[in-house]
Amino acid sequence: MLLQLKDISKTYKSGSANADRVVLRDLSLELDRGETMAILGPSGSGKSTLLNIIGTLDVADSGELIFDGNPLRDFSEKALSASRNREIGFIFQAHHLLPQCTVLENVLIPTLPLQDTAFKKECQARATTLLKEVGLWEQRNQLPATLSGGECQRTAVIRALINKPKLLLSDEPTGSLDSLNAQGVIDLMLQLNREYGTALIMVTHAEHIARQMDKTYSLSDGRLHQISSTDR
């Protein structure tokens, strides 16, 4: 088991108790290594919040998050950052590439906080491989401003995978792309999932994309409801 969520709750306080919004209500979830999962749900249902809690960017009000067998509750800020850096990759609807950095530099940004020089070199080699694999090697020295949306998002995918994370969290990764580019990015993510065994949780509105995942859940009223389990 890679990830286990037990009775996770999250409420956004607004100042008056009546206006408080419960986003997640005693939510539980399990994900195995290499498994892929889609989470569907209407806007404001709490999909992104759930993803941020899983990614340790946000903290649940209650419940427990166990990652790779370790309860993260006792982790320090530093340990959480290290965990995010080495174990988890993020992809968002917007690529969030640093405009001042080239494609290659953007891909290597997650390696900057690393102290392990050998691993850094390994990441650099992987960056080369991945960029070649996705056809961005020629553009490696270009700034994001000169790339297409699809190229930017593919770069963001590679950036998310550069540290060989065990879990890839993806929040509407194709929301700003046309269907052709969107499928290309999904194919890439699944391909890397297969090649590297990286588990994947993807928040999406698109059912056809959700169907490509091992499991599909719907999030409503703060709880997850399994829709299907696909044997890919």
């Binding site: 990614g55 950052s81 850096n85 969030h96 900057l112």
Partner: peptide, 16 residues
């Protein structure tokens, strides 16, 4: 802020 967020998401500590 987005850049900061992505750095945080990729494991940069706040102090970094």
């Amino acid at each position: 802020r987005k850049e900061i967020a992505i750095l945080r998401a990729t494991g940069f500590e706040k102090k970094h």
